[in-house]
């Protein structure tokens, strides 16, 4: 019986800092997709209640302690950092997504500007406040973006494309750093 070693999507990519802005892979937490069946909203919320969570509205999230429930698309949310309540299984399809996504953290004064290179979203603080989440492209990749602080974002991309996402955000930061030196 082998002793299998787990490897994260961006293993070997050390955090980097450009002009005070930091890009790093975030530690993995269990992720379970929850997709309620039609007409089962009340039952789903009841099953989530013990976690202190409720099914989030589009572009939102529900959080309690270390557990988060992140809206992740049509009829779907990702439960992050908590075990899935067993009672949910009757009312929603549940799939383990822990391994499907790489999570990148981008924080610092250039974070918003860096993301507004590859992401075609209005990420100004007023339009995209802390706690807001969106499914949106990161250049040609599907991504889930969440603003975690005034100057901090969490970027989820499919695991197989994590290196491309890393490269694109790195380039955006390098360009912004060079621009900052210009004037």
């Amino acid at each position: 019986m082998p002793d299998l070693i787990a490897k994260s999507a961006l293993a070997g990519h050390a955090p980097l800092v450009r002009a005070g802005t930091r890009l790093a892979e975030c530690a993995a937490a269990p992720i379970t997709s929850i997709a309620p069946y039609p007409g089962r909203a009340a039952q789903v919320d009841a099953a989530l209640a013990p976690l202190g969570l409720s099914f989030p509205a589009p572009n939102g999230q529900s959080a309690s302690g270390t557990a988060r429930l992140l809206w992740a698309g049509r009829d779907m949310a990702f439960l992050i950092g908590a075990e899935t309540p067993a009672a949910l299984a009757d009312h929603a399809s549940l799939t383990d997504q822990t391994d499907g996504w790489a999570i990148l953290g981008l924080s610092g004064p250039l974070a918003e500007a860096a993301l507004m290179r590859p992401v075609p979203l209005d990420l100004r603080l007023a339009a995209f406040p802390v706690g807001r989440t969106a499914r949106a492209p990161l250049n040609h990749m599907q991504a889930i973006l969440t603003r975690t602080d005034d100057q901090a974002f969490e970027v989820m991309v499919f695991r197989s494309m994590a290196r491309t996402a890393w490269a694109e955000l790195t380039e955006a930061l390098a360009v912004l750093e060079a621009r900052a030196k210009l004037s």
């Binding site: 589009p58 572009n59 698309g73 049509r74 075609p120 979203l121 969106a134 499914r135 949106a136 492209p137």
Partner: peptide, 11 residues
């Protein structure tokens, strides 16, 4: 209706 106003390239 779910995500809000988005650029054509997302569709």
């Amino acid at each position: 209706p779910l995500c809000g106003a988005r650029d054509r390239r997302e569709f």
